[in-house]
Write a protein that binds this DNA or RNA. Structure first.
Lengths: 360, 360
DNA sequence: ATTATTTTCGTGTGCGAACACGCAAATATA
DNA sequence: TATATTTGCGTGTTCGCACACGAAAATAAT
């Protein structure tokens, strides 16, 4: 590891001059600047990030804007925890992370959250862009202020986000279909259940497309039924609708839920139906895992949400501190969870929660 | 973040005295020591690891002792790459990592490697304990010198390793059986293929146990056949033996390979057999992934070997630098890979190799 | 009581980089 | 030629911690 001091000695200048060249501070003659640059290149110089971090002392502010979570829907807890853990690790690198939440069903809360966020004057932001039009507004402001941003979980096209972190939803659905096919054999009858509110969510519809594509590409005949709920959280209503559907269509063999709400569906279904059904859904929420373990659900497709949050912070930190440009698409794994392997899937989140019992 | 200076001020002593208490250097009166300790606790003090690393300047040496890899068996490449990436990250924290290889079929090379390693006087070591008796010798020396050690990939019992990093092999085999069952239905005929040299490997036999347990616990009748190779790398011989077995037993529906050598098996099998067979094996080596993509193999159970290597270095670093005691068993995920999701499974290894093309 | 020896601390320096201050030399303006 | 301004660069301080040196205060030995 060569240091600035060594570079300075080789170039016969002081450390300050090297520093000026490194940071383009100006005030260096062209000749010495070139000499120094040459020597820097020869020595393959990179600043010691440790010393750098110590000297900088919190220069960068990161902000995140993600949906909140509650007991009914814990999906957004994991990314948040991952973000927290990531924040801790980069804190000593001079990075300060502030999180803002919004209600994923309320565009106004999204914009409000963003406005609060902007008051902190962040160096970079992470956004879960749940609403397309509002995101356009938001992005306009970010770009005006030259603030780089990444998209998380939802992969909107046509924006200048420096990166995306999340799953390849289409393939996620495709894998779900493969598992369904594997469990049911050819010519299955499958019910797809979704919430109307989610129909506008591009990730969900990409999953459904992927699911369909599997059967088309592999030339597998299939009968498909659909059920849309207005409000999946209204358990009583859902229960009636779902079970009457199953009563009427006793040949339904599998239920596909392209969202994290599959446990709600599973818990609605009467036992007599449940035992002859294959359920496939998404995301490793505690409720979903419980259903897996109780044999109510056959497979869960997951995406390591904790890791996603954690990674995002590191990605932004590298971008700011090391000027390292991220790849465009950071696709997370498409994990296939069964009751046997689920408990091994995201150990780090559990460990982190155990180490920080006060977070809950 | 409270600093030593602030602690010192609160305790009405100098920074040096606080430092003495923090490092048990002695030379502090009982009274002031207790005052300082109380204040440290009140402030929940942890030393800034950045400043610490800068001041320490490489005080710890880590050594790893793992099997080498070659083109024929790339399994050990991934952990090695993970170790390399981990080493880079902790380098600036004053940790120096040196890797030693051995031939996994030669106990002598294992002991020789260890002796070379010991000359560096490591602060902690990582071992893949392929040979039980030799490991006993090795561990005796380590314990005599008070050098902490972790086991990697192979989980030997009865040792004082501070941690284990690897897969729960039994469950790995269990999941493999589930997938086999899912593909073949009840009453399947399954051939298990292994190498004689691996019979002593506890991980492999635990996988076979897990595989059997699945069918026993779920009360699924099954016909089992076995084939043992002396040297699986002798492709011609393996090919003849395997295909003649398949000719004679045309009712074999699935082949279970409890090791990373499944691609060798897959490539031996004649096409006419292959298309009607379900193959399930372990580990995401490039050859295995290729077979997955070519539809020769149905499922691969994987364990994120790159991550394992990477994690190990961080675990040992945390142990040395932050005195953080690791959990006993760091079980890796039991990933289910299909041709659809395989490419999303261990992105970081690919990225790391792309960033460092010189490593290959 | 005086000197010798511990015990108990404070002070100073270095790790490598960031950044502010200010001095000399070069150039411009009068 | 004298003065003002700009250009080019060296020096010093800071970040938080580790560690060495050595000084006062307390105790022991004479």
């Amino acid at each position: 590891m060569t240091t600035i001091k060594e570079i300075a000695k080789q170039a016969n200048v002081s450390e300050g001059t090297v520093d000026r060249v490194l940071h383009n501070r100006g005030g260096v003659s062209i000749k010495t600047e070139e000499t120094i640059k040459k020597i820097l290149k020869e020595n393959n110089f990179t600043a010691n990030p440790i010393a750098r971090a110590l000297a900088m002392k919190s220069k960068y502010k990161l902000c995140t804007l993600i949906p909140g979570y509650d007991a009914a829907n814990l999906f957004w807890k994991s990314p948040y925890m991952g973000i927290l853990k990531g924040s801790e690790e980069v804190k000593n690198y001079g990075i300060e992370v502030t999180n803002f939440n919004y209600n994923q069903f309320d565009p106004k809360s999204y914009v409000d959250g963003f406005n609060n966020l902007m008051e902190l004057n962040p160096s970079a932001v992470l956004i879960v862009p749940n609403f397309v039009n509002e995101t356009k507004q938001i992005v306009k402001q970010l770009e005006k202020n030259n603030i780089p941003y990444i998209f998380f979980n939802i992969d909107l096209d046509g924006f200048n986000n420096i990166s995306f972190i999340g799953q390849d939803s289409h393939t996620g659905g495709y894998v779900a279909a493969k598992l369904m096919h594997l469990s049911l054999g050819d010519n299955p009858t499958i019910l797809t259940v979704q919430t109307r509110i989610n129909i506008s969510n591009s990730g969900i519809s990409k999953r459904i497309d992927g699911f369909n594509d599997y059967f088309i590409k592999n030339n597998i005949p299939i009968e498909r039924l659909f059920l849309d709920f207005d409000n999946i959280n209204n358990v009583d209503e859902s229960e009636v609708a779902l079970n009457s559907m199953l009563d009427k269509n006793s040949h339904i063999q599998g239920i596909f839920v392209p969202s994290s709400r599959i446990s709600i569906i599973a818990n609605c279904i009467k036992k007599k139906h449940l035992k002859s059904l294959q359920l496939v859904g998404f995301d490793n929420t505690p409720q979903n895992i419980k259903c897996l373990e109780e044999d109510k659900i056959s497979f869960i497709i997951s995406q390591k949400p904790f890791n996603q949050g954690f990674e995002s912070i590191h990605l932004l930190t590298d971008y700011l501190v090391k000027k390292k440009n991220p790849i465009q698409k950071n696709y997370s794994p498409i994990d296939i969870l069964t009751k046997e392997n689920a408990r091994y899937n995201e150990r780090f989140e559990l460990e982190y929660e155990n180490e920080n019992p006060d977070l809950n």
